[in-house]
Amino acid sequence: MVNFIIDGKKISAAEGTMILEAARANSISIPTLCAHETVSRSGACRLCVVEVKKGKRAKIVTSCLYPVEEGIIVETKNERVMNVRRLVLQLLMARCPESEVICELAKEIGIETQPRFIPDKDKGKCILCRSCVRVCEEIVGVSAIGFSCRGADKTIGPPFNEDSAVCIGCGACAYVCPTGHIQMEATEDTRKIWGRTFKMKKCDVCGRYFAPEDQLKYISKKTGVPLKELAICTNCR
């Protein structure tokens, strides 16, 4: 066990625990946007920054990626930390003025928009947190979506901005998206995501449309389970 202090509170946690988890386990809340439990962490959004003091040195780190260390003193809400968090939220509000999630978060922490930033109109609600890209690669395993370009021009989507040939329409990306940028449109027998429409499969037992055909084909191929056995929805299995 490692012993350390967060916001004046003596805490111990197992070695390898990230500051974020250690804090949450002790009811100290740290806001995050890009740390999703299902995917690996990138430290991209920078909202979860905290200050870590080690001896005389104090530095700002992302709590989602910084493993606890013996004797460190962590501050999650001091002025230096709040200055970064304020900037990050103001920047994200300017990038995604329509994102309710970001506005709510800013309101909670008491941060107002910076009037000097002209709100973007072309970025939607995407904060480039990369959870969608990671879930598609790490969990689904198809890497249908990825980044293009860099810097302010960076966007996320299928390559060449065209329908992806490998997307299975599973919707995992939409599920992990923290701001609701990724839209999934569904009718009774179709699902549309990233511009491509997928045909849904009807459950052989109850007749309910429950999953994209492409997804079932993919699972069958990957697991070796015959497609027929997959044609029954989870409720009827």
Partner: peptide, 12 residues
């Protein structure tokens, strides 16, 4: 290599 990764590198 997935197309998305090739495209990522080509545009980066």
């Amino acid at each position: 290599v997935p197309s998305s990764r090739v495209y990522e590198v080509a545009t980066f």
